[in-house]
Write a protein that binds this DNA or RNA. Structure first.
Length: 949
RNA sequence: GCCGAUGUGGUGGAAUUGGUAGACACGUUGGAUUCAAAAUCCAAUGUCAGCAAUGACGUGAGGGUUCGAGUCCCUCCAUCGGUACCA
């Protein structure tokens, strides 16, 4: 092929990649002479499986958009980096002994190589890596700021803890309006007489980063804490071992302090309504009342939150979360066995199961009673899994007449039900609808539900047993992980019981070197093994937990603005120039978690005056997911002779329960097809890869088999389901071979051509030839018979029309991020130009500029061939000229009763009446209206004609 | 369970936002070119009936609004994402 001028993507891509790098084409600097535009991608976790075909979907879109913005005259920041702390690297380290920093560095290198192959315009000099101490120094620093602040509800912003201490020492909690864990009443003497440890406890109730008791899924056999995701039916997904809830002191972030602001500022963001709805629901604001119930033979009170204070006369029992602090004390001797048994059961249940399995109710009676605050009646106190510790107060008043779950519970345990709302006027209303008239409710009788709620709240307030309250479903974020590969907490504990943060000079606090990355005994973090590291020179103990994945990703977009700054997380000059992210593209899987945490951190930094905007992401687009096929083996729920037992998919039977264990797709034959299966070699690779199962029984049509026994035949059919392409599902497809075969331009355009950016779709390469043909056809407009043949003569009106229609369409489509239809428009344009054998410079040059954001390599090559010295990516965008696309006639469809029967062509300026009379004269129309009465004729200028007969 | 999204030919998808359903591609079939293949080009291609003209049906299912519904409303089904320690 060499020597000819066929399009050779290998040569062309290498040539321009080198050239762009040498000339620093994509270097981004502050330039106040131009308007700025900040395009952000959600940065990837650099997994060992490498970049997969799903990642680039959003990256290609943002690359196209940022190149487009550059051509439109903006100074564009379009950075990339790595969310480099995380579990997979740690698990890999446990398995292989390779230090996570090492494997992560290697993976990052691979990602950078793969991303560069796709021709993205990232400026790698401002890349970030969240696991780099120079980066996490600032993650730790922001954490310390959170630790050193509380939320003042009167000023509606974060304020220094020093102010709080001053307030407490001069007036106690009087006049203090601060977001806190539990309401406290302290006098100034109370505070001043406290020990350091007691003061520390009090402050933890207010700090934005604080320590409290939380629960984790602990798996004794694996010796590790598990995500809810990894717990199935109370057992570990890996290895099928029992899992229990374990209470531990852990760090949390008081995101709830920002709940109202996180909710209200959503209104001003250019995010999809769906995404805003998800965030609103996650925050889950509800209005209601806080009520205190006395306990029989106890001085304490049970605090509950209810949105239905009107139904209080129907409260016939109370339910505490099984983890509620009072449970142990309220359990009577008679009931202790039953409660104990129930707590064990709940311990094995994941939170997801507790919320989703609403049909089966379960619970246990504590033996104690509460006193109904209005009627004075004794009502039993139960515990049940449907009440969650971290939602509201972890306790409810149960009203079986007006709540479905309370009702099911009362029916099961034969607790009285008192009807308190008459809904006969609203036959379609459900239990939870706030409709009806109060009955059996003393002074509320006859009031509507709405009025009764108001009346009751006033009553509660005057009796001083409750008050109006807003509640949020949003919970404080658990911020501790018992893991190695995360940011160490810059926190020490003194022998006096004080918790103190490191000074900035001592940051970053780097991870200690370890050779064993498994968690230590008792669910302790691996860091607890680093004895020398834990003790500071002052004799303090360091915190041994590490921060979660969302720590580094909650502020990374700010670091890009000034990625190398050693003195600040970013200079004020850079932050004030780049301001906020103008366009953020990323997956819906981050719709609540990451986006909520980032907004929270950003608002905190805004309160501190460190960023100029209250919100970080002005416009946000969710890209759909490129899905893969998840292949899994069926594992019998019950072991056979103490061994794991897998069955081939066709041997699954109705009565038995199975776990689907996802397997690496590389081991699977006929991947993605119904016949997908594991051969003997596949099984052996699988067992070597997951040693938990190397003793397992594998049952196929021919009987039972084991690893190590030389059976000839063994074929385990796998279950194939469409799902997200993810390292945890082991179904990652790598883009490298597609790029090698078709070239980066083709890969980029094909991913865009697959469909709308927001939509999810399974990966396949079926249509890629069409895009490849398009690029070759484009090339052939320039090169015929191996020679560049370009004409400088004036194009025809028809050629101009094709060009300008395309400019108009593509420009609009890019603004709407409708890249799939933009690609179609290019295809139509090139097809039409090819028909005319157009080789006019005045047509082809603007076309190249238009296409440059999509196919940066081929357009740069042709641009150079046309004699240009400066990169096409610095050229200005073509301007649409409407006069070139005007047409003198319009074609109208003519419908009879809404069905198209004919079409007519009329002058573009024809009047309604003219159009109608032309339409009526049509032969086809005459045929259809013959002998029928014409009831109505609708003429929509520029659109259509409909005749109703 | 709850929250959000999606559903259109054999396949990916388009449809100016209530106005010609299936653009643009893939695939398939037939033809041209070729010693042959690749590549390229031309034609056909929603389903059913028909030689054809043409007609009937057709946007997950069922109802509704409208001169007109893929698009709006109601009910249902299926699939995907999230559900707080995967990131």
């Amino acid at each position: 092929m060499s020597g000819t001028r066929d399009f050779n993507h290998h040569e062309v891509e290498q040539k321009w990649k080198d050239h762009w790098e040498r000339t620093n084409l994509y270097q981004t600097k502050i330039d106040t002479s131009k308007p700025k535009y900040y395009v952000l991608d959600m940065f990837p976790y650099p997994s060992g499986a490498g970049l997969h075909v799903g990642h680039p979907l959003g990256y290609i879109a943002s690359d196209i958009f940022s190149r487009y913005k550059t051509q439109k005259g903006f100074n564009v920041l379009h950075p990339m980096g790595f969310d480099a702390f995380g579990l997979p690297a740690e698990q890999y380290a446990i398995k292989t002994g390779v230090h996570p920093a090492k494997s992560t560095a290697k993976n990052i290198e691979q990602y950078i190589r793969q991303l560069s192959n796709l021709g993205f315009n990232y400026d790698w000099s401002n890349a970030v890596n969240t696991s780099d101490p120079e980066y996490y120094k600032w993650t730790q620093w922001i954490f310390i700021q959170l630790f050193e602040h509380y939320y003042d509800l009167e000023q509606d912003k974060a304020m220094p803890i020093a102010d709080l201490k001053l307030h407490l020492s001069t007036s106690g909690t009087a006049g203090l309006h601060a977001s806190c864990g539990e309401e406290m009443e302290l006098s100034q003497d109370d505070w001043n007489n406290m020990s350091l440890a007691q003061k520390d406890q009090v402050l933890m109730n207010y700090r934005l980063a604080y320590r409290k008791v939380s629960y984790v899924n602990w798996c004794e056999e694996l010796g590790t804490v598990l995500a809810n995701d990894e717990v199935i039916n109370g057992r570990s997904e890996r290895g099928n071992h029992p899992v229990e809830k374990k209470a531990m002191k852990q760090w949390s972030l008081r995101i709830t302090a920002y709940a109202e602001r996180l909710l209200s500022s959503l209104d001003h963001l250019e995010w999809s309504d769906a995404l805003k709805a998800m965030q609103r629901n996650w925050i889950g604001k509800s209005q209601g009342a806080q009520v205190f119930f006395d306990i029989e033979n106890d001085t304490r009170k049970i605090e509950i939150f209810t949105t239905r204070p009107d139904t209080i006369f129907g409260a016939t029992f109370m339910v505490l979360a099984p983890e509620h602090d009072y449970v142990a004390d309220l359990t009577t001797d008679d009931q202790s066995d039953e409660i104990q048994k129930y707590l064990e059961y709940v311990g094995s249940r994941s939170e997801r199961e507790r919320m989703s399995e609403t049909k089966v109710v379960s619970g246990a009676f504590t033996g104690s009673y509460a006193i109904h605050p209005i009627t004075g009646n004794k009502i039993p106190i139960w515990i049940a899994e449907y009440v969650l510790k971290d939602y509201g107060t972890g306790a409810i008043m149960a009203v079986p007449s007006d709540d479905d779950r309370d009702q099911a519970f009362a029916e099961k345990f034969q607790i009285p039900i008192i009807s308190v709302v008459d809904k006969t006027d609203f036959p379609d209303a459900e239990n939870h609808d706030k409709l009806g008239t109060m009955i059996n409710s003393d002074f509320l009788n006859g009031l509507s539900v709405k009025d009764a709620i108001e009346r009751m709240i006033k009553e509660l307030e005057s009796l001083k047993i409750g008050k109006r309250k807003l509640n949020y479903r949003l919970r404080d974020a658990n911020y501790s992980r018992q893991r190695y590969w995360g940011e160490p907490f810059p926190i020490c504990y003194t022998p006096d019981g004080e918790t103190i943060a490191l000074d900035i000079e001592n940051l970053p606090l780097e991870l200690p070197e370890l050779d064993d990355f498994k968690p230590a005994s008792g669910a302790q973090s691996p860091l607890s093994r680093a004895k020398d590291w834990i003790k500071t020179s002052e004799g303090y103990d360091r915190e041994t937990d590490t921060m979660p994945g969302f720590a580094g990703s909650s502020w990374y977009f700010l670091r890009y603005m000034d990625a190398k700054n050693p003195n600040e997380f970013a200079s004020q000059e850079a932050i004030n120039y780049w301001q906020e992210v103008d366009l953020y593209i990323g997956g819906t899987e981050h719709a609540v978690g990451h986006l909520m945490y980032s907004r929270f951190w950003h608002k905190f930094l805004f309160d501190k005056g460190l960023v100029p905007t209250d919100e970080p992401f002005k416009k946000l687009v969710n890209q759909g997911m490129i899905q893969g096929v998840i292949e899994s083996l069926s594992l019998k729920q019950n072991k056979t002779d103490g061994r794991h037992h897998f069955v081939s998919a066709e041997l699954r039977n109705e009565g038995e329960e199975y776990l689907n264990i996802p397997i690496l797709i590389d081991y699977v034959s006929d991947y993605g097809l119904p016949s997908s299966s594991l051969s003997r070699a596949g099984i052996e690779s699988f067992a070597a890869w997951m040693p938990d199962y190397d003793k397992a029984i594998f049952e196929d049509a021919s009987g039972h088999h084991s690893i190590g026994k030389p059976d000839d035949m063994l074929t385990m059919t796998t279950i194939s389901e469409v799902g997200k392409m993810s390292k945890s599902k082991y179904n990652v497809v790598n883009p490298d071979h597609v790029v090698a075969k078709y070239g980066a331009d083709c890969f980029r355009m094909y991913e865009m051509f697959l469909g709308p950016i927001e939509q999810s779709k399974p990966w396949d390469t079926n249509g890629i030839d069409g895009v490849s043909k398009f690029l070759r056809k484009l090339w052939s407009l320039f090169y015929t018979e191996e020679k560049l043949q370009i004409s400088d003569i004036e194009p025809s009106a028809e050629e101009y029309k094709i060009l300008h229609i395309t400019i108009d369409k593509v420009d609009n489509y890019i603004q709407k991020l409708a890249f799939n239809t933009a690609v179609s428009s290019f295809m139509i344009c090139v097809n039409e130009l090819k028909k005319l054998n157009c080789n006019k410079r005045l047509i082809l040059e603007p076309l190249l500029k238009l296409l440059a954001p999509f196919a940066p390599f081929i357009t740069e090559e042709l641009w150079e061939a046309l004699g240009h010295k400066e990169s096409i990516h610095l050229s200005t965008y073509p301007i649409y000229d409407e006069s070139k696309t005007k047409s003198s006639t319009v074609e109208y469809p003519v419908s009879i009763n809404g069905k198209k029967r004919a079409s007519i062509t009329v002058d573009a300026n024809a009047s309604k009446d003219d159009i109608q009379s032309v339409a009526m004269q049509q032969e086809a129309v005459q045929k259809w209206i013959e002998g029928k009465e014409i009831r109505k004729v609708i003429v929509v200028p520029g659109r259509m004609i409909n005749i109703v007969v």
